[in-house]
């Protein structure tokens, strides 16, 4: 009677401890990666550039294309609703505010997790499985500094830039649909936008959001790769976990950040 209950209790305790250990491990891991300068001398800069290329430049296509389409859809939907109330001039304001405050940072982070985060996890996981990480350690190079730190910083730097590009392309897409196609007067499209968007409190908060998302998504990606079971199955699981955890973290954090920034 008592023994199965104790067994159950032990299971709960075991998973709880495992969870806390994982958090502690990833925290320590990240602190070491952030403060670890990537390899001494000029090597560090080159490593960062390479990662910026892999993480940032290669994500540009998906970011611009989805930004354009999201902006166009917002313009179309906004116009169809606003034209009923005779205030279709406000479509610029609607497109700009929703992109700058919410959709820009969030959708970019979700796409980034799918495009760059999963690649980071798979790459690091495979390095671990083929024992490249332990060979690095063997020849006296800290893999945290050589492999993890440049990837983390590249993600952290790329995310706000990608978000800004996404937002701007989206607004241009919205302008294209509502001004050029649906015939909203161009002057009031841009001026209603200027009247309602504030640089510090709207664009600035969007940038803060994207910085937070950048740090969180890249953190999850590199940690999942580093912590993956070094088998092919383990890597596939770690990649899936990266996308799932990143998306959930982004959406959850977005609510918290929005509540702090705009919820007064």
């Amino acid at each position: 009677m008592l023994k199965p209950m104790l067994d159950r209790l032990q299971q709960v305790g075991h998973s709880g401890l495992g969870f806390v250990q994982a958090i502690g491990r990833s925290g320590l891991f990240m602190v070491q990666a952030i403060f670890g300068r990537p390899a001494a001398g000029g090597g560090g800069y080159g490593l960062l550039i390479k990662q910026l290329y892999a993480v940032g430049v290669l994500s540009l296509v998906i970011i611009t294309v989805s930004g354009l389409f999201i902006g166009m859809v917002l313009g179309l939907q906004g116009y169809n609703i606003l034209v009923r109330y005779g205030s279709e001039e406000a479509v610029g304001q609607m497109v700009a505010l929703s992109l700058v405050r919410e959709l820009g940072p969030v959708v970019t982070a979700l796409l980034f997790a799918g495009r760059a985060g999963s690649a980071l996890t798979a790459e690091i996981g495979l390095m671990k499985a083929t024992e490249q990480l332990s060979s690095l350690e063997m020849i006296g190079v800290d893999p945290l500094k050589r492999i993890i730190a440049p990837r983390f910083w590249a993600g952290f730097i790329s995310m706000p830039l990608l978000t800004l590009i996404f937002t701007m392309v989206g607004i241009l897409g919205g302008a294209m649909v509502s001004v050029d196609w649906l015939g909203v007067y161009e002057g009031s499209f841009w001026s209603s936008m200027k009247d309602s968007v504030d640089f510090v409190s709207d664009v600035g908060d969007g940038i803060i959001k994207s910085l937070v998302f950048g740090a969180v998504v890249t953190w999850i990606s590199v940690f999942q790769g580093y912590d993956a079971t070094p088998t092919s199955e383990g890597i596939s699981r770690a990649t899936t976990r990266t996308v799932v955890y990143s998306s959930l973290a982004v959406l959850g954090l977005d609510f918290v950040l929005t509540a702090v920034m705009f919820g007064d």
Binding site: I49, V100, L161, L164, M168, V197, F199
Partner: peptide, 30 residues
Amino acid sequence: RMRTVEISVGAFMLAGILALLLLALKVSGL
């Protein structure tokens, strides 16, 4: 090879800064 990588990263950074400028001047009317 490194040269093309560096050039494209530079272009990426410039595009980001350009987007920020457009957001500041054209969208938020700063």
